[in-house]
Design a protein around this nucleic acid. Structure first.
Lengths: 146, 146
DNA sequence: ATTATAAATAGAAATGTTTTCTATTTATAA
DNA sequence: TTATAAATAGAAAACATTTCTATTTATAAT
């Protein structure tokens, strides 16, 4: 799996550094989305000297390269999530346990085309995010509803 | 139109204050999305004493009430936009001129249902935002592309 | 109209996040 | 092994947002 990450960095023309690999590994291992500060705290155990700006920079580079994805959170804080499926950047996020599930939105491309057609504009990107409670959490949260 | 805004505030159980009406008027007049600070600057000409926290609070109340909508911007800054169509909170935003256009996404409800069904979770909300350049700006921006 | 009351606000300050800057270190290609 | 361009630490600045308290204001009841 690490070789995979080496390759990812190479493809992005980024040097293969221990810290970049660590960020990739942390995000790849997590099923949930995490904040820059959380990633930084995780890294401090392995790297005695690690600056928060470094984490921000690495996250930005990886996000730029499409390897990870930003989560839109009600609080404007940034959160990141490792993209398992590079073609589907649309997700369901559980507001309780933070789990992220890829959403197979076949409608996405169609929507984009439709919008581009109607508005005669140029579409750069689109975001589809569904917020809610995952199966487990919704059972815990609202045992009354159905 | 001001009567309309009076009514909106009444329905939200918010007192009708000059500042709340001013925020509503500013957002209703703008075709583009604006930041809290920009709204604050506009208000300072009419209200000599107006605090930025007041603007934030009013925006939050209106957003809570569904009268305005938050824009997801690459920079984590908050932006707000007046909802002309209360039922369609999905939009196309022009990254150049900030114009916001409602997007008639009939797929939205279907997507939400699909996601809820597949994941067996509970959907609270969803966001569909298409980023790009509007017709005018895309003509200015990339005269080379078709 | 007047008054009582709860809501709204100003202003200051705190908080928290993200970015910028410079000197030092490190990965990589020659 | 070395040169060099990229990556990083650490401090500090910049910026956005929230919290707090005293004061003011809108509204409902007199």
């Amino acid at each position: 799996m690490s070789d995979n990450h080496d390759l990812i960095l190479k493809n992005l023309n980024l040097k293969i550094t221990p810290k970049r690999l660590a960020v990739l590994n942390i995000l790849a291992d997590e099923l949930v989305f995490v904040s820059p500060e959380e990633i930084w705290r995780k890294m401090k155990s392995r790297f005695k000297n690690i600056g928060l700006p470094t984490v921000y920079r690495i996250l930005e580079e990886l996000c730029e390269g499409g390897v990870i994805s930003k989560i839109i959170h009600p609080t404007r804080q940034l959160y990141y999530y490792y993209c398992k499926n590079l073609n589907h950047h649309h997700h369901f996020i559980c507001m309780s346990c933070r789990r992220v599930e890829d959403v197979n939105l076949c409608a996405a491309k169609e929507i984009e085309k439709q919008v581009a057609g109607n508005l005669k504009g140029k579409v750069l990107s689109h975001i589809i995010q569904v917020n809610g409670f995952c199966k487990t959490c919704s059972q815990k949260k609202a045992p009354d509803e159905s």
